[in-house]
Design a protein around this nucleic acid. Structure first.
Lengths: 327, 327
DNA sequence: TTGAAAGCGCTAACAG
DNA sequence: CTGTTAGCGCTTTCAA
């Protein structure tokens, strides 16, 4: 009992005892069994995060931001990926809730009914549930750290419209299950059409996006190059940009381009690729801060070191259109 | 007890009973407490993975490969990152072992003595310990899924030497704690020097690598452009490539380039960037397969679904120099 | 400041 | 095929 106490609240054991315990610990390679601790205390120090795909740079940054923010406070990250499948997401939520996590982070605001029920139950039992990468004003049951994808699609269309382009194409992502990409695409098309512009929606193949972007440029070329094209992400746009340069197409005079995501390469392509910045790392950081704040206020929890950085509630930077040489 | 049995080995309960249990389950939103299960059974179905940085595309792919391989078998992934610090790695290993993981995956073969002791203890207690992304023939205590970084550095130097370049620069990564990058750099320099070539080692700033690569190109330009340059990774090389194009430098006639990693963009830059492919995703997949194989042979473990794919022991593709237009 | 008792929710072993 | 008993390693509570 005294050892257990020493491990959790060291200043509550006498210095002499503490020294003896430390000595013993050094000889023993003792590792506290966290399952037993969790079972007894009901607290777990696990944060479960469920993302569509970890190798997607965007989500990887969010995970890294979350991980970095949260690990400083003794929380650990249980990570699962869904491959953009809602059914798989439900499975993962169910699996992950069995670890009684201190917090649950899911991607997006769309879930199967059963998944939603699990999330509601988790929330009801006091586990913070956060949705990242999207925002749905019509259902604010969970904490949302993201933005409106249709609004971004409209913003992108208006950028082209304001610059006088009346003939534009939207190159959507080949990941057919990525309905957030779809929301941007549809909103783009609707906004452009509403303004009377000529607008076309094409979809990239599911293959590697940089190469796919190049292929889409060729496809547009063969069916009549539009005056301007927006892309579901900067990788697609980069591929198209590089191919356009090879084909001696002048950007933006013949062909204007707009990406999404503000990947590091966007600023390095020729005179720069115009894009929308969305701060994926910050999504993770803000998510972590919100989580820590909630855990702290839910009572001083012995296991969790009250975050040294007093959870500065920095707000999430909203999507911003970054104009560069390509438009 | 019967419910517990139904959940683990459904065919051992009578169909009628099973039906009653299923009905009850549907009404109850019951989630088994995995901590209690673990505590009682001594098995955890957790795989702990510790990587330097998740938002690094390379490690993200490894994690995704591991995650995908392993999740099909009911294992879950506990992820921690070290920011390339060995001290932090030790901390994370210690923390993660408290969850009695079924397997422990660490990055690289260099660890603090205490971390090593923990890994040895874990192995001794029957937990498979795997080291990814490196290989150390002199210490094969753990399963290694990686390659020799010095060998890659030498391979890169020999590529330039074979093509007759006698004046070359190696642009090392700005991540000073990344000693695997350092091993490649040093081996490159040694090999080139041994052959009597003129060779220089410079280090990129710690900033975002694509932009940093561009800056390094300018730096080389101002101090006399070498005949050939190798880069610690394809992002640095990409930045330099794009900048070289802007500066009207002819690749490879004036300036030959060689990257590392075979990132998707490498094949899309002009006539292609020569690089070394290292299969980061496969490292994760192979790691997962080895792990599953070990867990299966360590006795039929009720929790773990014997992997549907019978853990086809595909070997790890070794690093390969991919020659493209830049050299 | 320390320690004894009880119990967290589950599974192993065994009895019925 | 089902259910009883004991106990996993820790924490909570409370007494000494």
């Amino acid at each position: 009992m005294t050892v257990s106490r020493f491990l959790r609240v060291p200043h509550e054991v006498a210095p002499a005892t503490a020294a003896r315990i430390e000595a013993a610990l050094a000889h023993t390679a003792y590792t506290p069994n966290k399952h037993a601790g969790m079972l007894a205390s009901g607290r777990s120090n696990i944060v479960a995060a469920i993302v569509p795909n970890i190798s997607n740079a965007t989500f990887a940054q969010t995970v890294q931001g979350l991980s970095k923010t949260v690990q400083g406070s003794g929380l650990e990250l249980l990570l699962a990926s869904t491959n953009y499948s809602l059914a798989r997401e439900e499975e993962q939520i169910r699996a992950v809730l069995g670890w009684s996590p201190s917090g649950l982070v899911v991607t997006g605001c769309r879930h199967t009914p059963a998944a939603l029920a699990l999330m509601v139950a988790a929330k009801a039992s006091g586990t913070p549930v956060l949705e990242v990468w999207d925002s749905n004003p019509r259902d604010k049951r969970f904490i949302q750290i993201g933005f409106s994808h249709p609004a971004v699609g409209r913003m992108m269309a208006r950028h082209f419209l304001q610059r006088g382009y009346r003939d534009m194409t939207y190159v959507d992502s080949g990941v057919i299950e990525d309905f957030r990409a779809r929301e941007r695409a549809n909103a783009f098309v609707a906004e452009a059409a509403k303004a009377g512009a000529r607008v076309q929606l094409i979809t990239a193949p599911q293959s590697e996006p940089i190469a796919a972007g190049g292929d889409m440029l060729d496809e547009m070329l063969s069916s009549g190059l539009p005056r301007a094209a927006a892309f579901a992400n900067d990788n697609l746009a980069t591929g198209a940009y590089l191919r356009a340069v090879q084909r001696d197409i002048s950007i933006p005079h013949q062909f204007a381009m707009l990406g999404f995501g503000d990947f590091p390469i966007a600023s390095q392509l020729g005179d720069g690729l115009s894009t929308v910045s969305v701060a994926p790392y910050d999504i993770g950081v803000v998510c972590g801060h919100r989580l820590l704040a909630l855990l702290n206020e839910a009572g001083a929890r012995p296991g969790i070191r009250a975050s040294e950085t007093p959870a500065a509630p920095r707000p999430l930077p909203q999507p911003e259109l970054i104009q560069r040489g390509s438009s």
